[in-house]
Design a protein around this nucleic acid. Structure first.
Lengths: 240, 240
DNA sequence: GTCTATAAGATGATAGAC
DNA sequence: GTCTATCATCTTATAGAC
């Protein structure tokens, strides 16, 4: 896994104390871009969040100590508490950002399609968008799927509505396809959906960007789900 | 959960039997080992192992304390060290047993097929056997897949050869099917295999035995992988 | 805002009684 | 073989200096 840090950052931020701000701008809990500008506090908070996402994803929730996060964020463990109430709240925010990003990415990709796009093609696009948001700079998104099962019960409960909403998006897409006659009549849609989630999210564990283009990968993943692996029944075996 | 034998489910006796200690390290029952521990020690050891498998699976490796395991095994935390050197070794044995059982179950199921069975049908049988060993009394097997990613690096390294061997079994099955012309020429077999693993192993997280028979479930899972979800191109019955 | 220091409790592991 | 007692360390979280 990723044991090493990129370490392309500057040695130490010699930023002098900015003029004290009387009014702190409201914390936009928008999915932070990490590099977002803004007050120093906000940027540090973002750095901690980024570090937490990466560390949680790599070592799990229980396996991550606040010191691990602090080291990755280049400060001391105690300082984290200025920005977050507890380790659990930190986890909660990482999970929340992750699922929100995937959800938004898929929704956006599908809304960008022409209205006449067939349900099956929408599914194809959804799969590709889901995978991209997982695999391309997907620290929060991959963490969100990888460690959700490790979260304390109350955290998981609080996350449930958001995750259910995302699941509902997929349920709807599949039902639309079925209503359009595009789904094989024997298929169990609930099973197919969970099957798909498992297959897609597992890619976080093994996908290697060096071994081929992401474009090819996501395309092939969608085809595999839609068509399965078998050759069409009619075509003769190529063996001579 | 606490009730055995729900009324509606489990009409399925033909389970390949929870492979009884398929891969026990088996060092203890050797006769020439001196007058060492009798069956009692072995049974306690087994109880600890069972408790560890269940607890590791449910709470993760780092999230499990030796006391958790001790409580589940009905003894004290310190007593575990009479049977196992460390928490890591305990994990290692759980992981090892799990992968060995799945591997053995799949191999046995396929070897039981008639020799003339087509490669595609072998894959079908393999999928069903893998799923069964995961979902039917699969404390070790499900733990093995669920927490492998959480294992300390050295443990993971030591497990690698066994897991690679299992992956090779699947690689071979898929290649055989391709050689027989049964796989769609566009499919990427490596991707398909990982896709399949993800889909199957994720079922541990959501499969509910109360919602339908295991037989139906494993059959449908195999069909979904083999054929995909789409309806055959020719017969698309639009809603009239 | 971030630091140092530390409280308060849990954890993996060991020693020795029984 | 299993227990109790305990060690050394680590962990989350807090307090107060700067």
């Amino acid at each position: 896994m990723s044991e090493e840090q990129p370490t392309t950052t500057n040695p130490s931020p010699p930023v002098p104390e900015p003029p004290d701000l009387a009014a702190r701008p409201a914390r936009s809990s928008l999915p932070g871009n990490g590099a977002d500008a803004g007050p120093k506090s906000e940027r540090t908070r973002q750095r901690i969040l980024d570090a937490a996402a990466r560390t949680f994803r790599d070592k799990g929730f229980a396996g991550t100590t606040l010191n691990d996060i602090a080291v990755a964020a280049r400060l001391r463990a105690g300082s984290i508490y200025y920005h977050f109430d507890s380790k659990e709240r930190l986890l909660e925010e990482v999970l929340d950002i992750g699922i929100a990003r995937v959800s938004a990415a898929v929704r956006r990709a599908i809304e960008a399609l022409p209205p006449e796009t067939s349900p099956a093609d929408r599914i194809r696009t959804g799969i590709e968008a889901h995978l991209r948001s997982l695999l391309y700079h997907g620290e929060y998104t991959s963490a969100s799927f990888r460690i959700f099962g490790q979260a304390p019960p109350d955290v998981r409960t609080r996350m449930l509505s958001r995750r259910r909403a995302y699941a509902d998006d997929w349920r709807r897409m599949l039902q639309d396809a079925r209503a359009a006659g595009e789904i094989h009549p024997d298929r169990d849609l609930a099973l197919a959906r969970m099957f798909l989630f498992g297959a897609l999210n597992w890619s976080v564990e093994w996908y290697d960007p060096e071994k081929g283009s992401l474009d090819d990968f996501v395309r092939e993943a969608a085809e595999t789900f839609l068509h399965g692996i078998l050759a069409p029944p009619n075509e003769a075996p190529p063996v001579a």
